[in-house]
Design a protein around this nucleic acid. Structure first.
Lengths: 233, 233
DNA sequence: GTACGCGTTAACGTATACGTTATTTTCTGA
DNA sequence: TCAGAAAATAACGTATACGTTAACGCGTAC
């Protein structure tokens, strides 16, 4: 064991990304923004040409995305953006309900002080504002911030990572249904109830309230998917 | 859309695996069996030589394993089997508690008939037998079968996949602590309670019982890790 | 006219080569 | 002797080449 006299510090300024990471980000962006629409197919080489990289980093990025459930890789057919059907949304919401309820419980158990919860409170307030301004995009963005903050603040990295992955899978569907449903008036109130329980350290209530929140949203979405017979998203 | 007259059927006999899959399985096996112990480091090329493949498929397998949290990839240092510390086990059990409780709820909601639940019942019976025979390995294997069956039968593929991934992360730790703790007598009874609730379609009880089961096991494990001051597993 | 089989083609899976960059070692000067 | 810098080394990240194999089209036989 050699003594390490000089401590090497990371340069946060650089943050150079590998081509794999760049390819991953770009492809994922295109999928989430619906540029690569559900069912879209492209060969590895086509994606590589599209991004201006060689096949290798693209291939590795595609493998990552496959594991996250956004695409599938079909031999000799390339990548295919997996369409999300109603059953998938059901699965996605079940997992989200499960993980986020646990996150709410964990966060409540930590008895965080008000400052820590600020991002969630701000997000909730922004939701309310967006609702008044009839700005659905802003509402959705704020809603996402709330849920993202919840899982990040709970302290469980694995849980956060898994919840993010599965949330991304449902991203397109949420965006599509945003305009098809009634004004999402219930969420603000529900978020406030969750927040209150967390503040008070009442982890059981926090868990139950969040469970109910996600459950209601899930049922709501399912009804829309049925009503409009949306085949895939 | 061309009419496909000849239906091509998959040959289940072949089941040829790609080198990536082979490498993945072999490396994962070595990690779980503690052949590649926690903290073990090896260069990509070393692993490739070890398995007799070239770097490419090994590299892709390593990337997969990184995403599953079993190893980390350090530039110019190769792969490193990530040691699991007490905090990690806490995280792992929190996620497992969350996902499996949902699985129990979902399964109960489906009101499955006795035949479907047979694997879980068999597993529980095997646990009891193993306990009487003082065969801890057999007990652990049967216990794992129970939990595996639960998440597979619940019907949510995403949930099952995530639960499997995180369970594998804690595998080594469970094996190590198996011998350090008292006879795991509570589990059989708890499993039976979960099973009963599922049978009766009482999803709330199923969920709560499973939650309690995992919670107790988690606390038990945490105490052992503290007692023996196990730094990493 | 249909079905089967063979040949062509194209995409992937894998190997390998190469350039870049972090690490290590060596050398020099104080 | 030790610090610092420069050179050497080694490993990775990426590109590219190659062999394999599945898909597709065409021709032939029934």
């Amino acid at each position: 064991m050699s003594s390490r006299t000089s401590v090497r510090k990371r340069e946060p300024t650089k943050a150079k990304q590998s081509l794999v990471e760049l390819a991953y980000d770009q492809i994922k962006e295109r999928i989430l923004q619906n540029h690569y629409h559900p069912g879209y197919q492209a060969l590895e080489s086509e994606v590589a040409d599209d991004l201006g990289f060689s096949r290798t980093p693209v291939r590795e990025a595609l493998i990552q995305l496959k594991h996250e459930g956004l695409i599938e890789l079909i031999p000799r057919r390339g990548m295919r953006v997996v369409p999300v059907v109603a059953d998938d949304m059901q699965e996605i919401y079940e997992v989200l309900t499960s993980l986020e309820s646990m996150a709410a419980e964990l966060l409540a158990r930590k008895q965080p002080d008000a400052k820590v919860l600020e991002p969630m409170r701000v997000a909730t307030r922004d939701m309310e504002r967006a609702l008044k301004a009839d700005d659905l995009e802003a509402w959705a963005a704020a809603d996402e911030r709330f849920h993202r903050a919840l899982i990040e603040l709970c302290g469980n990295k694995r849980l956060a990572h898994m919840a993010t992955t599965v949330r991304d899978q449902g991203h397109r569907a949420r965006m599509v249904t945003l305009r098809l449903r009634d004004k999402p008036i219930a969420s603000v109130n529900e978020h406030e109830r969750v927040l209150r329980a967390i503040e008070q350290g009442d982890w059981q209530t926090a868990r139950d309230e969040h469970y109910a929140h996600r459950k209601r949203a899930s049922v709501e979405l399912t009804e829309i998917l049925e009503k409009y017979r949306l085949p895939q998203l």
